[in-house]
Every structure is written in C-alpha cells, then in structure tokens.
Design a protein around this nucleic acid. Structure first.
Lengths: 145, 145
DNA sequence: TTATTTAGTTATCAAATGATAAGTAATGGA
DNA sequence: TCCATTACTTATCATTTGATAACTAAATAA
C-alpha cells in the first residue's frame, strides 16, 4: 500500500466531509447571522471563555475584523465581554443566555440531522465508527506539520 | 454506547478536519485566484467535464454567479468551454492545459504536506487509516438524509 | 521613569460573494 | 405552430469579508 494512493482517498474523503457538514449545518441559523458570525459563535460555544485574540487566531481573521464582528454580536446580545481582572487589556468572551439558547437550538438541529444519517447503524456499526474516528484523529489529524 | 455521545465525537472530528484541510490548502494558490475560484477549479479538476449547472449545484451558488466566475476563469485561460453537439444549450467545462498544470501543482503541494502529516506512520498504521476512511465513508458520509 | 510590547478598537477602503431581474437561444411538449 | 421549459448570460446592486492605518490603554522591560 503506497502513501500516494492514500492521499487520493484522503482528498476524496475530506471533500465528502465538507459536503456533509455543509448539508448538516444548512439553514440552522434562523437568526440573521452571517456565516462568519455563526462560525465565531460555534467556536465560542465549544471553547468559552475565549479571548478576541484566540478567536482571531483560530478563525484566521485579523484582530480588527474580529473586533468588528464581536461588536455586532454584542449589539445583538448574543455574547458578553468580561474584562480580565489580572490583565485589564484582556477580555473574555462568552455566550449570553440568548446566544447560548440559539446555539443549543442550532446544535440540536444538527444533531437531529446527524442521527438521521446513522439511523440504520447497528450497535456494532457505532463501535466501528467510533473506532474509525479515533484512529483518524490520532494517526492523521492530530499530527503537526 | 449511545448515539448522542457519538455526535459530539463527530462534531469535534469534523472541526479538526476543517482545520487540517485549511492548513493543507493554505497558500497553495500562488496565482491570483480567489478562494471560490480555487474551489471551482478543484471541482472541475476531479469531475471534468462538468456543466455550469453541475458546478452551480455542487458549489451551492446561483447560475448567474457561476457564469460570472467561469467567465473570469476563461479570460485567464484556466478553463475551456465546449458546447454540446447534441443539446446546444449545454456546455462542458474542462481545465485548459494551463489550468490543469496549475491544479497539478496545487495538488502536488497539498500531497507533499499530507505526506509530512503521515511521515511517521508505519505500514500497519496506513492500513488502519485506509480502513477507517473506508468505514466512515460507507457508514456515515455516504448516507442520504 | 521611559520605551516597547501587547490587547483590543475605530475607521476606511477594496475585493469577493450573494441575490435578483431581464435577456438569449435551444429544446420539447401540446 | 405556439408555448413552456431549460441552460446559460449579462447587468446591477447589496452584503460580507479582508486589509490596513491610526488609535487607546495596559503591561512589561530597560
């Protein structure tokens, strides 16, 4: 087995992953949120509390643009900014009650669609899928370049 | 094992996939190509010949916008349009020599980075990865909603 | 203390992308 | 033949996103 043909399998796989995640997340954002804002909220949801700099790094956007989007999200009461007591330059961002509710609903919707995707999976299938996810995470995706 | 905790593992996994593919494809597009144009070329590369309608459907963009981007790509001699002899409304899009060369280089660059990612994988690891990709494709990603 | 660095903001501009209306030309059905 | 549909184009406008300069305030190093 050569690594080059594994590459082709990998490319095809990632294309499918992107396709499926697009389908799963399509139209979950009922509120008037831009795709970028959704991605930011999603990141805050799973990593809160986070600083603007962290968002900037992880979402590959400049700090000024991050600041702008966070301001819009705060104006819509979806997030809260809490300044660090130690270092008063720093801020911690977390979802507001409203923002959290919105993201919970979004995730519930995605989960529902995901469960449809694996509705025919047996208990053994589930175990296989879990194992496969684990192997890929460990042997491919958590490697550093 | 319940399906709900599998969902969380899945979400985390897809986030990692997006992260890694972003890193792999970063800065591969030396030519002055927008991200959208790159994605279109990538799709043409692996699926050619394709019609504008197919591109429109698969890339989730309107036909007018597809037409606009294809015009730009043709102006830069990266693609060719061939009209169908049967149905003269239809067109087939394929990469030009130049466009193909560009995409070959892009893929080579991505492959190089991918190989770095799995440089420490043994022959057994490769087999495991292959098997994991196969299982996920089959049991999760190829399911229809 | 003073200078430098860090964290974030505000403002502004340009480019990319999305949405929509109106059009052409070919096809296919009634 | 006439009408509806399909495939695609052109034009235009709005929105989103990216890039950059100039700024404030706090922390840290010299």
């Amino acid at each position: 087995m050569d690594k080059s043909s594994l590459f082709h399998q990998f490319v095809s796989f990632t294309a499918t992953v992107h396709q499926v995640t697009h389908d799963l997340t399509q139209n979950v954002t009922i509120a008037n949120i831009t795709p970028l804002q959704y991605k930011i909220l999603e990141y805050i949801k799973v990593s809160q509390p986070v600083t603007p700099t962290e968002i900037s790094d992880c979402q590959h956007m400049s700090l000024p643009n991050t600041s702008r989007e966070l301001r819009k999200l705060q104006e819509r009461n979806l997030i809260e900014k809490i300044s660090d007591t130690e270092d008063r330059r720093k801020q911690y961002i977390r979802l507001s009650i409203e923002g959290n509710k919105m993201m919970e609903e979004a995730f519930a919707c995605i989960e529902e669609r995901f469960l449809q995707l694996i509705q025919h999976a047996t208990q053994d299938d589930i175990k296989d899928i879990q194992q496969a996810l684990f192997i890929l995470e460990q042997k491919v995706f958590q490697q550093k370049i």
